[in-house]
Structure formats: C-alpha cells, structure tokens
Write a protein that binds this DNA or RNA. Structure first.
Length: 267
DNA sequence: ATGCCTAGCTCCGCTAGA
C-alpha cells in the first residue's frame, strides 16, 4: 500500500496536479490539507472517476482536510469529537479527519489527515493556540487509541522537529515552526507512541524538505523546511518499506508551496 | 529573512500562510 500526504494550498487551484499525481504514482490513500473549500464544495468528481472514495471537511476559504482512498472507510472521526473541551478548538473539524479501513493483512487501520495551525508570529495568541492544539491532539489519540493500534497520522504539522530539518537553523532559530516550544509539543505528541517514519529510515539525512517558500527562489536553492510528516505506531514499523519526499509536483506549473511525502508499506 | 509569492474574500487592498 502506498500512502501520502500533501498540503495542496487550495484544491480548486491544484485539482489537476492531484489528479496527475494520483495516476502517476498509483497512490492508495492520499491525505490533503488546506483544501480551502467548504465541505460540500469539494471538487470530488475528478477523483471519484479515478476510483477514489472522498472524505473531506472544510470551511470557507481556509483550512480543510481530505482523504482520498481506494479503500472504503468503515468509520470516520472529525475534529476533537468526544473531548469535553472540543468547543475550545472551533476549527479542529477543518484540521483533523480520520478513516478506519482494513485489508487482508490488517483488520483495522486508522489513517488521519492533519493540519496543525501555523501559529502566526511567535508568542502571539495564535502561537499558543497552536501549542495547545498539539497537546490536545495527544489527548484525542489517548481517548480512542493505544500505542498498539495500527495508526498512521499524516499531514502538515507546521513543526520542523530538528535543526537538520531546515535549510539554515541559525537564520531560523526561534522563528515560527522552529521554536523549542513547538519542537517540545511535537515530541510530546510522539510520546503517545508515534514514530516519525522518515527518521526511522533516514535518521541523519540532511536537506530533506517538504515545503519551500514561494519567494526568494527558495525551491531552486533548496531552502526549505520539513514540516509534513507521516507518523506511525510500532505495529507498522516492520511493515514500512520506504518513505520519500516526491519533489516533482513542486516543479510543476503553478505549484503548491508544499510537495507530497509518500510511504510504501508491505500490506 | 520579512513580504520579494500565492490564494481567498471582498470588492481592486487586505489577511494568512510558514
């Protein structure tokens, strides 16, 4: 099974890229973020024609997450449903979406598409909202799952976990997505029992990025950050065959500023 | 290394993204 995650920065602008990508790479489950359309306005027909089930939740002009899956979901979860202070995170429904699927090998596999808030500027109200959102997401996982549940959490976390995940840790020191508090909140999330799949395979490899600024010729100079992640629980570790950033869509005409991250599993 | 892109929304300039 080939799965992937991609912040598309508007599905309406990127639907042809997504369609081309699904076909070229034969992706089984693709998580999308920043669809930027209301739930009911998702341009799904194109993907249905390619054999995908569409799961989407979005708001007006911002946020929005989706899962395009060749396997039909048996159950879904949206936002922080079930948590008693879920109302404190009104946009969570546009940021967290999970589906439960199964096949011959795994009788239960939950896959999530996640879009963690960007955080704006460091120490702003929105920055602290981002930190709380990361902590709350761990509470959410603990409510429904355990470290032994086969679980894939993928998406745009808006956190570069280590210095090696950015093109210049000195320039970016304590800037948004790179602060110690964000890194610690991300680590605390992993302590639920999640593993950063890319670092399982490539623990020390430098210069692996999933996002490049539209400005400054950042992509041409490979001045990016690794903000998109595929996190897995331990039952899936020995089933992970490979994981890689697929850079080609970032070079297509009118690209998203993010590029897909793909993972191949032997189930 | 902060707005030099980009997208959406609301009206042709603003906010947000990261």
């Amino acid at each position: 099974m080939l799965i992937g995650t991609w912040n598309v920065n508007s599905i309406n602008m990127r639907k042809d890229h997504v369609s081309k990508f699904l076909q070229e790479f034969s992706v089984d489950v693709l998580a999308l973020q920043e669809t930027k359309v209301k739930t009911e306005n998702f341009p799904g027909l194109l993907f249905k024609k390619l054999g995908y089930e569409i799961y989407h939740h979005g708001g007006k002009g911002r946020n929005g997450i989706a899962l395009l899956s060749k396997i039909k979901a048996e159950d879904t979860k949206i936002g922080f449903e079930g948590l008693k202070d879920a109302d404190f995170f009104p946009d969570a429904k546009e940021r967290i979406l999970g589906i439960k699927i199964s096949n011959e090998v795994l009788k239960e596999l939950w896959i999530f598409s996640v879009y963690i808030p960007n955080g704006g500027s460091v120490n702003s109200d929105y920055y602290f909202y981002k930190l709380q959102f990361l902590w709350k997401f761990r509470d959410f996982l603990e409510l429904y799952f355990s470290k032994d549940t086969p679980l894939i959490i993928m998406g745009d976390f808006n956190v570069a976990p280590e210095d090696m995940d950015v093109y210049d840790p000195e320039i970016l020191k304590e800037t948004i997505c790179c602060t110690e508090r964000e890194k610690n909140a991300f680590k605390a999330l992993l302590e639920f029992g999640l593993f950063d799949a890319l670092r399982l395979k490539y623990p020390d490899k430098q210069g692996i990025f999933t996002w490049w600024d539209y400005q400054f010729f950042a992509f041409q100079k490979n001045q990016g950050m690794r903000l998109d992640h595929i996190l897995i629980t331990h039952p899936l570790i020995d089933k992970l065959e490979d994981i890689w950033v697929e850079k080609t869509p970032r070079g297509w005409k009118k690209p998203s500023d993010h590029t897909p991250l793909l993972a191949k599993f032997n189930f």
